[in-house]
């Protein structure tokens, strides 16, 4: 294995470890706030994967911004041969916004949860609910 292959194996292992830890927290941690934090970590991991997919591993490489404002064919050809893919960043920005709105909604619901049950621990909430059902 060359240096490049070792590097990429390392990058992918880190991404997978990140996703695995986020999923573990999402499922196993009883605190709702920790679940929300793990959800955002999982989303951010997917953004990194998207950014990596959109990049072009060649030289020279340029961003997806055209510097000439009245390009002819030669400029366009050179631009396309250098520029990174603009579609994954677009998907990322969409995903970031959706993630942000979901997080805001979840945080507000978590505050409500705390108001109603006095705790953010889902196990305790389940116990309280069981007790309430037993009283009826």
């Amino acid at each position: 294995m060359g240096v490049g292959e070792v590097f990429w194996l390392y990058v992918w292992l880190i991404i997978m470890a990140n996703a695995g830890m986020a999923l573990y927290g999402l499922i196993m941690r009883p605190n709702v706030l920790k679940k929300i934090a793990c959800l955002t970590v999982l989303a951010d991991t997917s953004f990194i994967v998207l950014a990596l997919i959109g990049y072009r591993f060649k030289y020279p490489v340029s961003p997806y911004v055209m510097t000439s404002w009245a390009p002819d064919n030669a400029t366009l050809t050179r631009f396309i041969s250098e520029s990174v893919d603009p579609l994954p960043p677009t998907l990322t920005i969409t995903a970031v916004v959706i993630n942000l709105s979901i997080t805001i909604l979840l945080v507000f619901l978590a505050i409500r949860l705390y108001e109603v049950y006095g705790t953010l621990d889902v196990k305790k909430i389940a116990m309280i609910k069981k007790e309430l059902r037993g009283e009826q």
Binding site: G4, W8, V49, I53, G54, R56, K58, D85, P86, L87
Partner: peptide, 13 residues
Amino acid sequence: SGPPAPAKLRLLG
């Protein structure tokens, strides 16, 4: 263990 993106651009992009 290779780079995730090809050196050539995808057709859509």
